[in-house]
Simulated scan of single mutants.
Amino acid sequence: MNTNRVAIVTGGSRGIGRAVALHLAATGHPVVLAYAGNTAAAEATVGDIEAAGGRATAVRADVADEHAVAALFDTTEEQYGGVDVVVHAAGRMHLSPIADLDLDELDAMHRTNIRGTVVVAQQAARRLRPGGALVTFSTSQVELRHPTYGAYIASKSAVEGLTLVLARELRGRDVTVNAVAPGPTATDLFLDGKDDATLDRLAKLAPLERIGTPEEVAEVVGFLASAAGHWVNGQVVRANGGIA
């Protein structure tokens, strides 16, 4: 397995993606983080990585644009020599009862979550070096099936199916493909607009009776991306404290 491992993290400027970028950088990976539009957040993440002694580059890229994603991989190969780990954390969520669902919101969400995953997975399948790993992101809502999550669950169920098929298509390549499905996780996006009573109710869903942290999810991703986790392949890992 290549010891000079280079990582791409989409959605790497905020939330779980940022935690993953920081974790991989701390474990020795040069990291190229892709972001959709928040340049300040992306540059802040790069600054934090570099301040801790790591190496990182931020690249703006729409994950659903095949040309932008190809350029992202080109930049990574040109700057660091290759690609060994791809973590596709970029995603979009819109909640609504199915009867009231805005179909434009559905299209936008599926463009990012389904098309974006296909586009990133295509480049990963073509370019990951032997010993490499692709980690996609689903959600524990696929099993929980809470009201208003229907369209989001539909998009993430597609991600799970794609991930499991790709793991089998890469037979003989020495590349693993897995998905991580977090439960409630204390990101700014998750916490925004929720009062203490709501957060307490959500915390009680898991037998561990708390909400997870982005860093805990990043640790799971780091394991799947590492030599220690290379025997785990074609799986959906539900990192949620036992909620489902």
Rank of each mutant, 00 (worst) to 15 (best):
L164P: 12
H94S: 13
V237K: 01
G229E: 08
G53E: 08
D188I: 08
A89K: 02
R115F: 07
E209F: 12
L134V: 04
G28Q: 09
Y152V: 05
V32D: 00
V83S: 01
A64K: 01
D192N: 11
T10N: 06
A52L: 09
L202W: 12
A7M: 04
G212Q: 04
A52T: 07
G183W: 09
R173E: 05
L199H: 14
T117M: 05
W231E: 02
Q123N: 08
L162G: 01
L103G: 09
V6T: 03
P147T: 10
G161L: 11
G91R: 04
A90P: 14
T27Q: 09
S155V: 03
N178V: 10
E78I: 11
D200C: 08
T39P: 00
A228Y: 14
I211C: 12
A61T: 05
A52Q: 09
K194M: 15
A108L: 14
N113K: 06
V221N: 02
D102P: 01
M109P: 06
K204R: 15
K156L: 03
L164M: 15
I49R: 00
S155L: 05
A26Q: 08
D100G: 06
V175Y: 00
A21F: 03
A181I: 10
L191S: 14
Q235A: 15
V20I: 12
L189Y: 13
A7S: 12
R171H: 13
E105L: 13
I153G: 06
H94V: 15
R201E: 08
E209H: 15
L33N: 01
L72A: 00
A179F: 09
